[in-house]
């Protein structure tokens, strides 16, 4: 079943076209890689889908419903969640309280029920000592907290914006396995932006490639990585 679909999605900032006419869809249970060189518009694309910015043109549908102009907090409530490339833990809240925010606002649970659900999520992700201040967490723990915070929305569509950045290879492996397990168990559609191609190869079922805001290729990682246009985009026109 198709969870999310964009049609001719476009975002212009003054003269710059950050996302240009992108049409794509995501199925439930699918892990989709979103790749492209720096500045290709990957984060802008996620910002459009999560409602942080509004598009210049085009349409976004979630489970058949038009959500193009829906405010971000409402998208969080109907089941779209994301993490951020630059992580902002809520500094005056503890680890567990950070995760609770999604439970109590996106889902509307009571404080007690929200805390219980947040605790379960933290346990699933292997987070312990939940009353800690967020400044005391390791990088891996911060990344897990960020994922737990998104999962607290109890989403059906989840976007992970460079969650593996800054992790060593063991930590990356652990997190890949975790994301796969969660996606399978909760039957999520997951969109993953990542620069490390090894992560994309291992984690994703399908890949879309953005360059200068345009969708230039789509398919399995093995096919896409052999596509001459993709190779050129990554190496740059001159070098190829």
């Amino acid at each position: 079943m198709i969870k999310l679909r964009t049609t001719n999605l476009t975002k212009r900032f003054m003269g710059l076209v950050a996302v240009n006419n992108v049409s794509f869809s995501m199925e439930e249970g699918e892990i989709l890689g979103i790749i492209g060189p720096n500045g290709a518009g990957k984060t802008t694309f996620i910002n459009l889908i999560s409602g942080i910015i509004m598009p210049s043109e085009g349409r976004i549908e979630y489970k058949g419903q038009d959500i193009t102009w829906m405010p971000a907090h409402e998208r969080a409530r109907i089941g779209i969640a994301r993490t951020y490339q630059l992580i902002h833990p809520l500094e005056n809240l503890t680890l567990i309280e950070n995760v609770m925010v999604g439970s109590i606002f996106a889902r509307g649970h009571s404080l007690k029920e929200g805390r219980r659900r947040a605790e379960n999520l933290c346990h699933e992700l292997g987070l312990t000592d939940l009353e800690r201040d967020t400044s005391r967490l390791t990088i891996l723990e911060v990344k897990k907290m960020e994922i737990a915070r998104a999962l607290a929305n109890e989403p059906e569509v989840l976007f992970l914006d460079e969650v593996m950045a800054g992790l060593n290879s063991d930590e990356t492996k652990e997190l890949i396995a975790m994301v796969q397990k969660i996606a399978r168990e909760k039957n999520l559609a997951v969109g993953v932006v990542e620069h490390v191609m090894g992560v994309i190869r291992e984690l994703t079922h399908r890949v879309i490639v953005l360059e200068a805001g345009e969708l230039i290729a789509e398919g399995k990682y093995e096919e896409v990585s052999r596509n001459p246009r993709v190779i050129e985009a990554y190496l740059g026109g001159g070098a190829a």
């Binding site: 409530r77 969640a81 925010v101």
Partner: peptide
Amino acid sequence: SRIHFALTAIRNNEISAKSSGVDI
């Protein structure tokens, strides 16, 4: 109450507050 969570989330980072469903 939940007001504490809403206001603290808004003070820290409005964008991530929105993504957690907080109607700022």
